[in-house]
């Protein structure tokens, strides 16, 4: 569609820190209104990439556009309509939550100051919590204050680095709902995580990063279609018999697990067939849990595969 720029466009971005390559020719595209997950193990470069989007880290090579403009083109308007945070949000510990937001609102200018009360309320920090000095905040409260601070910017693009970090399950549930709602209204969201399960629940598309390189990217449906089978944990009345039933089934790979029970690699419909076969063979299924989704399996495969490849290369390199 002509004229509709991607919310975020990253092309060939590279960043070195001394001898370490933090980002290696990274490409990433996020369409407007998308919820995009940035996945990778710790140290993959997620924070560096998000920092580059915020202008906290300046890439050595490549281009980075927000709403179709580079940092050079946009000047001081680079982050207009962009909000979020990188790593745990940090504030002035000697000021209260409200005063911190007042400082940030003043820096933003305009009518941001008028939005503070509502932002605090929507982040769940109204009342006593807002008056408390930030040095007494828990990690979860800091995350919420970070979200409130992001809201002050009327974001059309939300960039959140591990936003569920430090939140209790209720908070995580609320966050997921809030992000889904935001996306429905057209806000673009980029969130990073090392946990694929979280990403699956809320994202439309994802980029998998490891050691600064993009391993895989695309819409979650497409990734899922290309992903290996999910992994199940199963307990039966007769594990030995169950393994026997699985043996001739090509698309079902069952094995015993050290902790007892079995691990089964199979797609959902193959699993259904397997369970029915077990019943026919007189084996009762006592417990069945999804251990790893297809995307989780893909994720571990990719990142483990990367590590193995690195290890192999190191082996070759050593004389």
């Amino acid at each position: 569609m002509p004229g509709l720029a991607d919310a975020v466009e990253v092309r060939g971005v590279t960043k070195w820190f001394g001898d370490t390559t933090a980002l290696d020719r990274v490409d990433l595209t996020v369409a407007p209104g998308d919820v995009h997950g940035l996945l990778g193990p710790n140290g993959a470069g997620k924070t560096t990439l998000l920092s580059a989007m915020f202008g906290l880290v300046l890439p050595d090579e490549g281009t980075l556009r927000l709403f179709g403009r580079t940092r050079a083109q946009a000047g001081s308007a680079w982050l207009e309509g962009v909000g979020g945070f990188v790593e745990t949000p940090r504030f002035y510990p000697y000021l209260s939550g409200r005063k911190n937001l007042a400082v940030l609102a003043r820096l933003d200018g305009g009518d941001a100051t008028a939005l503070i009360d509502e932002a605090l309320e929507r982040a769940g920090l109204a009342g006593q919590a807002a008056r408390q000095k930030v040095r007494g905040y828990s990690l979860g409260m800091r995350q919420r204050l970070g979200l409130a601070a992001a809201m002050l910017r009327r974001p059309r693009l939300l960039i959140l680095d591990e936003p569920a970090n430090g939140m209790d399950p209720a908070g995580i549930r609320d966050l997921r709902a809030a992000l889904r709602r935001a996306a429905k209204e057209g806000v673009t969201v980029i969130l990073s995580s090392h946990d694929m399960a979280q990403v699956e629940e809320v994202c439309d598309s994802a980029t998998i990063l490891n050691r600064g390189r993009v391993l895989s990217a695309g819409r979650l449906d497409a990734l899922r279609a290309a992903a290996p089978d999910p992994v199940w944990r199963m307990r039966t009345s007769d594990d030995a018999m169950a393994l026997g039933v699985a043996a001739p089934m090509e698309k079902v790979k069952a094995a015993g697990h050290d902790d007892g029970g079995m691990t089964v690699h199979a797609a959902q419909d193959e699993m259904d067939r397997y369970v029915l076969s077990l019943a026919a063979a007189g084996v009762a299924v006592r417990g069945l849990d999804l251990d790893r989704t297809p995307l989780e399996t893909l994720f571990f495969q990719l990142t483990a595969g990367e590590s193995a490849e690195e290890g192999a290369q190191e082996q070759v390199a050593k004389p």
């Binding site: 932002a119 929507r122 919420r144 009327r154 974001p155 609320d174 966050l175 709602r181 935001a182 209204e185």
Partner: peptide, 10 residues
């Protein structure tokens, strides 16, 4: 997090 009232201020 008042999810029913997100996004804010757009």
């Amino acid at each position: 997090l008042a999810a029913d009232r997100w996004p804010a201020f757009v």
